[in-house]
């Protein structure tokens, strides 16, 4: 009965549409409206593009965005470079008996909150921390080194936080890669680097893409890690949004930043997909 079928469709569609509208579309419309207003000298709200203009005219704003985006891209790259061998080892080298166990092992740190993990790293890296203690004991250094509060420790923290979101799609797409494809390429005369570049990477490209999008977005939107591990130089774009909302009470500017973050990050992802000739729906399927 087509009528009953349609009813079922609506029944299952309603929560999805409600979710989309109430939790995603409406807040964004509100955000957009706020971002298009400024307060005039009388304290009234008037329509204006000044908030957006400020982003492009004030060097510190767009520089922060560029910096954030570049670090997010770097983090995504590093995350891939670090997690790929792990994923490859788990899926292709280890026997099935152990691969499940190792996958679980990868997941374990993510059962505690990001904050706790970051503090864990801080305890290890700080001047009076565990690493310095051992280095001093071993006589490798005479004076403790400050390993925290710089861009390297920040990127490390971001990569650490992101690894799970890269390794899971990589593992699942590598699992789909039949070993015999690799052997077939080998048999047809390909060397190992060629197999990697022409067979493995193209095959798992959808997995890489979906992992990269998630990692990129999460890193771009991260607030805790840059703040806690990056220390004094790590102005992150989300922090700037936070500052506009909380410290400066300038919601309009903050909303404009939020919207710009959405638009610009979408653009970067679109560009990335274009450059690698990828298709979003394929990557997310």
């Amino acid at each position: 009965m087509p009528y009953a079928g349609r009813l079922t469709l609506y029944f299952f569609l309603t929560p999805v549409l409600l979710w989309l509208f109430l939790l995603i579309v409406i807040p964004h419309i509100d955000l957009f409206v706020i971002s298009m207003q400024v307060e005039n000298d009388d304290g009234d709200m008037v329509w204006s593009l000044l908030n957006y203009q400020a982003f492009f005219e004030e060097k510190i704003y767009w520089m922060t965005f560029v910096r954030t985006a570049l670090y997010a891209i770097l983090t995504t790259l590093l995350t891939f470079i670090i997690t790929f061998p792990v994923a490859f080892y788990i899926t292709k080298v280890l026997s099935i008996k152990y691969s499940g166990f190792f996958t679980i092992l990868l997941l374990v740190p993510f059962w505690v909150s990001e904050l706790v993990r970051i503090y864990g790293w801080m305890i290890l890296l700080r001047e009076s921390g565990v690493f310095n203690h051992f280095l001093l004991q071993l006589g490798l250094i005479d004076v403790p080194i400050e390993m925290l509060y710089n861009d390297i420790s920040m990127v490390m923290g971001l990569v650490y936080t992101s690894m799970l979101f890269m390794v899971v799609p990589l593992i699942s797409s590598l699992e789909g890669l039949d070993d015999s494809l690799i052997e077939a390429a080998y048999d047809l005369g390909a060397s190992k680097p060629v197999i990697f570049a022409k067979i493995v990477i193209p095959y798992i490209l959808p997995g890489i893409t979906s992992g990269s999008i998630v990692v990129f977005m999460l890193t771009l939107g991260n607030y805790l890690t840059p703040n806690l591990m990056g220390g004094k130089n790590s102005l992150w774009f989300t922090e700037q949004i936070y500052n506009e909302f909380i410290a400066s009470f300038n919601w309009n500017q903050g909303a404009a930043f939020g919207f710009l973050l959405l638009v610009l990050s979408t653009f970067i992802i679109w560009l990335g997909l274009k450059l690698t000739r990828q298709n979003l729906s394929r990557a997310l399927s």
Binding site: E58, I60, T64, N233, S234, L235, E244, A247, S248, N250
Partner: peptide, 16 residues
């Protein structure tokens, strides 16, 4: 005053 200060604080944080 807060938004004036906010911008200055952002600049300090962003500076290298």
């Amino acid at each position: 005053l807060e938004s004036i200060e906010g911008k200055i604080l952002d600049k300090v944080k962003a500076a290298n």
